[in-house]
Design a protein around this nucleic acid. Sequence first.
DNA 1: TACTACGTTCAAAATGATTTGAACGAACAT
DNA 2: ATGTTCGTTCAAATCATTTTGAACGTAGTA
Lengths: 164, 164
Amino acid sequence: MTSELNQLRERFVERGGQITQSIGIGRVIGQVFAHVYFSPTAQTLDDLTRELGISKGSASMAVRQLEQWGGLKEVSKRGERKDYFEANDDFGRIIRRALLDLIGRRMKVTDSLLEDGEAYLIENGKDSRDKEIQFLHRRIRKLRHFRDRAQYIWDSSIVRLLLK
Amino acid sequence: MTSELNQLRERFVERGGQITQSIGIGRVIGQVFAHVYFSPTAQTLDDLTRELGISKGSASMAVRQLEQWGGLKEVSKRGERKDYFEANDDFGRIIRRALLDLIGRRMKVTDSLLEDGEAYLIENGKDSRDKEIQFLHRRIRKLRHFRDRAQYIWDSSIVRLLLK
DNA sequence: TACTACGTTCAAAATGATTTGAACGAACAT
DNA sequence: ATGTTCGTTCAAATCATTTTGAACGTAGTA
């Protein structure tokens, strides 16, 4: 009976690992979150290494990453030196924070490339008849428009809907 | 001058590769799309292997994947045996298709796990006082609610806004 | 102070994903 | 029919990412 519950928990752990693996942030993150989420009691790093069969280093890193995204919170137990972790269940907030963190920073670099490119083309193509310059300019403009709209959608709807 | 344009194109190719790499679908996809997108003329597999320094196999696979997502389209040239490719610039549609493809299918499996789990817990925990069963049941319910809402948001807003 | 029980770090190892390229088949040309 | 030019496939090689674990720092304890 209890073993059946454990089996169920293990299936969720496995699936959690698959999901985070498939989105490219490593299997351990998903396993750790799922395990803590489905554990009635707060868990320590030792619990994680034992139950999930992962190293202490992995457990430590996963736990800290998840904390950053608000997926886990540390709870202190009187008279205990170990760190205890509980899962948050506000998925919207967690996912939003993770996405902001994962995607957000990449954007900056690309933005500056778009701006540089456009600036260069405007500079050098002002009254140019050069077909290629005109072509590139159109393409960059189109890309920037899309980027702006994506930014707008991101800011205005996804965030509002998913958060809270 | 032309070489400066080429440099610009190369920077976009590199950035494209970084982006697709960072989201876990391989560098070549981004490189190929960026190259074709910023090329005034339709490109062949040979062009790609030469300009990007990738193998013919890679070029072939990337091009077909991008075609599936609507990122590239094949254009035929009279009297030519080679396949020529042009880029689409309807980014919203491309990204949406890619996301549907990449994320969409994973959902199914997780759904069935949620359903199985819930069914099992309802079955075995109907009038159970067992604290752990009740706990798991609450957690699964919460997760399923989130999943349902995410599905709704996905269906109703992102898709509509990003597509077209 | 010295010892112990923790969490963290990061170089190295293991793992897993991507890329290559030789072999192949199909379609065209001669 | 034969040779050539294409695109595709997939096992093997390469490359990148994740994971490990030994060494370390810190804080508590005796």
